[in-house]
Nucleic acid binder design. Structure first.
Lengths: 328, 328
DNA sequence: TTGAAAGCGCTAACAT
DNA sequence: ATGTTAGCGCTTTCAA
């Protein structure tokens, strides 16, 4: 593959001039520049990004490490990040940590080793270590879940508040024993949603409480839901922490012949594309996923431009969308 | 940030020894190696991947360029690729071309410039240009859709056959005017599905044919479906080319008060996680997405190891899963 | 405006 | 078993 020296030789100039011409520096004679471009085109020259980045000590790529590629919430974030990154001339590479701290660590290492310009991260747990990145000057912005250890940029959703609202909605709809299915302890969104749920329950005279934690996966959610349904004092409504789990719960309900809505109140976090298609349609807490991504990317670019800015924490609001699954 | 020289200085050895020790070369004294590791740990040394790759002329990262991150079919492929790449010590970075040839080109350029070890690509169109990659020695394997211009490795699904089978299924179920909603011309899967549909229709005495093409997006599919439904001679069944479009069709049917199954036969490609939850559940053509990804990754790794192997084209079978939406 | 030359951090010959 | 040294391909002083 052609290198810069090949181009220089063919154009009859030095490599320095080639570099300048191809990078649009103004200090190069237009005629020469043209000659260089021709030579480059002729040879099919593609600059070696590794060498360039090594020299410049910087890269125009952002890493986005998300905890589940198969969750529409995170892919929507990805699109938000991507759209603003693109317009700023950055590429974004997506890494799937799969809710696995070990994989996450590996990808953060890769991000560090490849010297990406910045990282948007939805941490698998609160204790993810990003100090290496930070101390090396690679900015990190957390999305969806905070990084406990560091006081950095982050874009979160006021999910506790939203859980409280959703639970009150179920209470008002007349359900009496409202449960909650949430994620593992230590996952901040899981904890917050549970806390919001519990505060709404506590504020109500009638509703008693029962909840389960499980991994953020369909199969686990299904098992947990079945467990809940087969209990002596089974719930007649459920607040579910995300759409992946909601699928498991819906499978469980179907297996037990329980119809959402009339028999059983259902509210799930995340307005997945299919939520409104169910019968009855699924009531959801819609999170502004795309905005989370776009804001995070903007924060990241701002910090790349100026590392000394004070850390910025944004908290966006979620919105309850009432549909049939939470009405008798 | 600490460099290899810092480590060398602290351990009192040469940089070469540090390199050897840290890369697990057997030719280094265990005691020295230990000293090196200590020094590295003390300094928080992280090798500079750029420098390493520049020197080695290779990278342990694979690029996966997919045409839609929000489509579960592609994210399932991503997991397949990732799982085998991980076990072989490769990282995979995901790039979302978003069915946009321009974005795709940009990402392929990035892949080339960053000198990734290989690329798994689901091309937006058949005329995607990968000759640069190839001529530079970066292997490319196509998934889901073929690359017309080159005779390289690919993992496809016999989608034409599957479309034919699905259409015959609808005919046998007693629907009389069966339509097809497929993607843009030039997208091979869209064309093949249409062709399979048409061959089944042609083989049947009764069923007449009507089809629409539209972009592979929910909103476009909805518009096309409404258009079809409002025609004079509207279809009473539809074969849909993917799950993203299926959502649009389902929205359209709901708007027109048409109930899938009894009133209107429905088969869609791709067994999305929610397909079985609908009422009636959605009949689908399930594609082995995860296997597509894992096989593609294995092919890619094989070719990285030995570039001279003859190109390998795999064709996997899809499987019709009959559910309620295609039964009166 | 252009060229010569240094050097980014690492690995791999080669020499010892 | 270890060190010396060259060089991966590029950008960027520094001189001219």
């Amino acid at each position: 593959m052609a290198t810069i020296s090949d181009v220089a030789a063919r154009a009859g100039v030095s490599t320095a001039t080639v570099s300048r011409a191809l990078n649009g520096k103004s200090t190069v004679d237009p005629a020469l520049a043209e000659k260089v471009r021709e030579a480059a085109a002729y040879l099919g020259y593609q600059p070696n990004g590794l060498a360039r980045n090594l020299r410049r000590q910087e890269t125009a790529v952002l890493a986005l490490v998300i905890s589940d590629v198969e969750n529409p919430f995170f892919t929507a974030i990805a699109r938000g990040v991507e759209d603003v990154a693109q317009t700023a001339g950055y590429s974004v590479v997506l890494c799937n940590s799969d809710e696995n701290a070990e994989k996450e660590r590996r990808y953060l290492d890769v991000a560090l080793q490849e010297r990406v310009a910045g990282v948007v991260l939805s941490p698998t747990g609160g204790d993810t270590d990003v100090t290496q990145l930070l101390s090396r000057g690679t900015p990190v912005v957390a999305v969806d879940r905070p990084l406990n250890a560091v006081d950095g940029d982050q874009v979160l959703v006021n999910t506790r508040c939203a859980a409280d609202e959703a639970t009150r909605h179920l209470i008002e709809a007349g359900y009496r024993r409202i449960g909650c299915l949430t994620g593992p302890e230590g996952v901040r969104t899981a904890d917050d949603r549970l806390a919001g749920y519990q505060s709404a329950i506590a504020a109500s005279a009638q509703a008693t409480t029962c909840y389960r934690r499980c991994e953020l996966r369909t199969a686990h959610a299904k098992a947990a839901a079945l467990d809940l349904l087969d209990e002596g004092d089974a719930p007649d409504a459920l607040l579910i922490a995300n759409s992946t789990m909601a699928i498991g719960v819906l499978e469980a309900l179907r297996e037990r012949g329980i119809r959402p809505g009339r028999d059983f109140g259902l509210v799930s976090f995340d307005d997945a594309p299919w939520a409104a298609l169910l019968d009855p349609p699924l009531t959801v807490v819609a999170q502004p996923a795309y905005e989370i991504g776009s804001i995070a990317a903007r924060l990241l670019l701002d910090r790349i431009a100026d590392g000394s800015r004070p850390p910025e924490a944004r908290e966006l609001a979620a919105r309850l969308i009432e549909r049939g699954s939470s009405h008798r």
